[in-house]
Design a protein around this nucleic acid. Structure first.
Lengths: 86, 86, 86, 86
DNA sequence: TCGCCTGATAGTTGCC
DNA sequence: GGCAACTATCAGGCGA
C-alpha cells in the first residue's frame, strides 16, 4: 500500500540523490581546479604562489565589499540614505 | 614589444582566471547543496541526520569499491581475469 | 608498583588538565569580549557595526601581511633576495 | 574643538582596541592549546583521541551541572532548600 | 526567544 | 610520515 510513509521515503530518496549528485559535481570541479594547478606547475609556475595570488584577490574583493557595506551603515546612521529595510 | 615576459603574463592571467571561475562554480554548487538541505528541513527532515546518511553511503561506496578492487586482485592471482596493466 | 603505565597515565592526566585549563581561559576571554560589546551597546554603539569594523581591520591586516609575503616570493623568484630557507 | 564627537570617537577607539586586544589574547591561548596537542603527539599520544576525551569530559560536566540543577529543583519542591529567587 | 546564518573549530586528504 | 590546504561540522550572534 502507498501510504504517507512511502511518500516520505520517496522524498527522502530524492533529497539524498540530489545531494549526492551535487556533491559529485562539486568534487569534479575540485578535480578540475587541481588539474589547472598541475598544468600550471608543468609550465613552470609555482602552485604555492598561485594559491597566494588567488587568496589575496579574494581578500581584496571581500574587503571592498565590506568597505561598501560599512559605508552604507555609516550613511544610514547619519541619515544620508534611506533604510533599505524600508 | 611582446617578449617571453608577456607570454608568461598572459599564461598567468589565464591560469588565475580559470581557477577563479572554477572556484565560483564550486561555490555555486555548495550553495545549491545548502538549498537542498534547507528545503529538506522545511519538509520536516533533520539536516544533521541527512548529512549522516550521506556520509555513511559515501563510506559504504568506498568500501564496496575496495571490496571490488580486492576481488580483482584475487581473481587476477587465480588467473581468472587478465592483468589490466597488460 | 609504579611502572611505565602509571607514567603514561600521569602524562595523560597532565595533558588533559592543561588543555582544560587553557580552554577555560579562552572561554573567559570570550566572555570578556561579549561584555565589551554589551557595554558599548549601553553607550549607544551598534554592535553589528563594531563587529564589522573589527572584521575589516582584521582583513586589512591579513591582506597587508599577504602582500608582503607575496612580495618576498616575487623578489626571491627574481633573485633579488636570498632564500630564507638557506 | 573637543566636542561630543571627539568623546564618542575616543570611546569608539577604546572599545575597538579593547576588543582587538582580547581577541589577540584569545588567539594566543588557542595557539597554546595547539602546542599542548603537539607536545602530546610528540610523546606518542593521539591528538584525535585526546580531543574526544576533552569533549566527553565537557559533556559529563554539563550533565553533572544539569543533574545538580535538577536536584535543586526537587529539593526546592520538597522545601529542603530556600527559593534562590527569593 | 527561536531559527537561521556566518564565523570558528575539527577532521581529512594530498603533497613533500 | 609530517605538514599544510581544504572540507565539513558546530556554536555563537543576529534578526524576526
Amino acid at each position: 500500500m502507498a501510504g504517507p510513509a512511502s511518500i516520505a521515503r520517496d522524498q527522502l530518496r530524492s533529497i539524498i540523490e540530489r545531494i549526492e549528485k551535487l556533491e559529485e559535481e562539486k568534487q569534479a570541479i575540485a578535480g578540475d581546479i587541481k588539474e589547472v594547478y598541475g598544468e600550471a606547475k608543468a609550465n613552470g609556475f609555482d602552485a604555492k604562489t598561485l594559491r597566494q595570488i588567488v587568496r589575496i584577490r579574494k581578500l581584496d574583493s571581500a574587503e571592498r565589499q565590506e568597505q561598501e557595506a560599512l559605508l552604507d551603515v555609516y550613511m544610514l546612521a547619519l541619515g544620508m540614505i534611506a533604510d533599505p529595510e524600508g
